[in-house]
């Protein structure tokens, strides 16, 4: 059973915003250039993260706050690799998106779904308590990172909203005026992660059960197309995160609405 994770490449925090250039260019323009220059230093180092707080988000999702005194900082959208070690030396490691914004000095937060049979998420949801120590390595990823510069159109489902919430928190904490929108999909209101935190930037979609007066339905072109059409100066940078099925669906809606494929960044669970 795969746990909800993210993929992509390591990066160092505080990296300057560049478009990496390469010598060989394929005949087709590269679909998704990286957003930040990367250094390998922070990515290579395993650090101890001490659990300081657990907050329940939904019946199956909780946020875990850690003190990591040597944390190099990160950009919204980046992730880390986390490792648990058993008494006999057996280890299990997973990639998890960072939920907290960059300015939370010396602390990071992860929001984890309790995956059925998940050995790492299972430990977090049944064993973990404040004071426990785990190992982390990161931040990783320059590809899904959002430095807060370009207008961002965010689409997430389930715990796929986690890296997108880091972007929203960053946008608020810094008082950025660059346009930011979020479409978030959940099965029902009780499964909507961070329900109390959303503001005017967010539209929630409920696929099974909806609150009074809100229709039940899948993310649709009727929701995506008008947002894409707003096209702020410089155009949207679209960030999609969720299961593969959701990512395929959402990215197809974006393309059909006219969003350029080289301005769509996708992270799929796996």
């Amino acid at each position: 059973m795969a746990e909800a994770t993210t993929v992509t490449e390591p990066a160092a925090a505080g990296a300057t915003v560049t478009e990496p250039t390469g010598a060989f260019s394929p005949p087709t323009r590269f679909a998704v250039p990286g957003r930040i220059a990367v250094s390998d230093r922070a990515a290579a180092l395993w650090q101890t993260a001490t659990l300081t707080e657990i907050r329940r988000e939904t019946p199956t999702v909780a946020t875990f706050r850690f003190a990591v005194p040597g944390w190099a900082g990160h950009l919204p959208g980046q992730h880390l690799m986390l490792r648990l070690t058993a008494g006999d030396g057996y280890t299990a490691q997973r990639h998890y998106s960072l939920a907290s914004p960059p300015d939370d000095t010396g602390h990071i937060e992860l929001t984890l779904d309790h995956v059925e049979g998940g050995e790492v998420s299972g430990w977090f949801h049944t064993e973990a308590r404040p004071g426990d120590e785990v190992a982390v390595r990161g931040p990783l990823s320059g590809f899904f990172a959002w430095p807060g510069d370009r207008p961002a159109l965010l689409i997430g489902a389930g715990s796929g909203v986690v890296p997108l919430m880091s972007m929203i928190r960053h946008h608020r904490a810094r008082g950025l005026d660059v346009p930011l929108r979020l479409l978030v999909s959940a099965r029902g209101p009780e499964e909507l992660v961070y329900a109390a935190e959303y503001g005017a930037e967010t539209t929630a979609v409920f696929t099974r059960r909806a609150p009074e007066g809100v229709p039940v339905g899948r993310l649709s072109a009727a929701l995506v197309a008008p947002l894409v059409a707003e096209r702020p100066p410089g155009g949207w940078e679209a960030y999609v995160c969720g299961s593969n099925a959701f990512a395929e669906h959402a990215s197809r809606l974006l393309v059909e609405a006219g969003q350029p494929v080289d301005r769509i960044r996708i992270e799929r669970f796996g």
């Binding site: 648990l84 070690t85 058993a86 008494g87 030396g89 057996y90 299990a92 430990w123 426990d132 120590e133």
Partner: peptide, 11 residues
């Protein structure tokens, strides 16, 4: 090696 308290992992 820092053992994670309470973690046994898969068989």
């Amino acid at each position: 090696m820092n053992v994670t308290r309470g973690f046994t992992g898969r068989p």
